[in-house]
């Protein structure tokens, strides 16, 4: 489905990605993990075409995506920071995105589930961080895209919304979608992810099942397993 081959990206003198190779399979949830500044967001943004890599290839369904834009029709993206133009209303923003990107499905039910409907007439600048994140989720999940990318989707969400988010992700998985997620919440990874990609210093340190990571590090908890890798790398 999605293949990343020998991806290199540097911002000036800082090498963020130094030859990343990953093969993402359909129907799998892959958690992209790594310490701050390990290149998680850069990797996701390269896939989205927002960051232009210096070297390497990204293939989606066998076709190279670099320099293209039509392929983004196959992607639903939940960004890390949910900042929107402040002077427009939630409803207007949703309508605007539906207008700009054809092929959207119904969103009312989704908004209802997320308890977002009461905020429809509110201006985006008046919303809390968690509510904005819900807007983000509606904007992404109203499209039926085969590739779902979530960059820290849990930021600001309350426990109820978190449960809804998990259900949403599980439902997407059941429909055979390829799901990429970055998060610092290890519970979420343990509960949901099939595979883990661990980025360290711009390379893939580990790619495999969650269970394998635990065996690999000899720890029985995700958090401890991750901590073990980090301690080793800092040492």
């Amino acid at each position: 489905m999605l293949k990343v081959k020998d991806l290199h990206k540097s911002y000036g003198p800082v090498n963020v990605l130094k030859g990343v190779n990953i093969d993402f399979k359909p129907g799998e949830i892959t958690a992209v993990l790594g310490p701050n500044g390990s290149g998680k967001t850069t990797l996701l943004k390269s896939i989205l075409g927002m960051v232009i890599p210096q070297k390497g290839a990204i293939m989606l369904d066998g076709a190279s995506i670099l320099g293209n834009w039509q392929y983004r029709d196959k992607i639903a993206y939940v960004p890390q920071i949910a900042n929107f133009p402040g002077n427009i209303r939630v409803e207007e923003l949703i309508r605007m995105i539906r207008d700009i990107r054809p092929g959207a499905g119904a969103y009312q039910e989704l908004a209802e589930t997320l308890k977002l409907t009461p905020f429809f007439k509110k201006k985006l600048s008046a919303l809390s961080g968690g509510t904005r994140q819900k807007v983000n989720l509606v904007l992404a999940f109203m499209f039926d895209a085969p590739l779902v990318i979530l960059d820290e989707p849990t930021a600001g969400l309350d426990p109820v919304a978190l449960i809804i988010l998990k259900d949403l992700i599980a439902e997407q998985k059941a429909r055979g979608k390829t799901i990429l997620i970055t998060t610092h919440i290890m519970n979420l990874v343990e509960e949901m992810a099939d595979k883990v990609v661990f980025l360290l210093d711009g390379t893939v340190y580990f790619h495999g099942a969650v269970q394998e990571l635990k065996e690999h590090t000899g720890r029985d908890h995700m958090e401890k397993a991750i901590a073990a890798i980090l301690e080793k790398s800092y040492a």
């Binding site: 989205l48 927002m50 392929y71 133009p85 990107r101």
Partner: peptide, 17 residues
């Protein structure tokens, strides 16, 4: 600058830069 975030949202959509 004030529409930068919105621009990023648009950049993730199937729209040419």
């Amino acid at each position: 600058y004030s529409s930068r975030e919105f621009t990023e949202l648009l950049l993730a959509q199937p729209v040419k830069r």
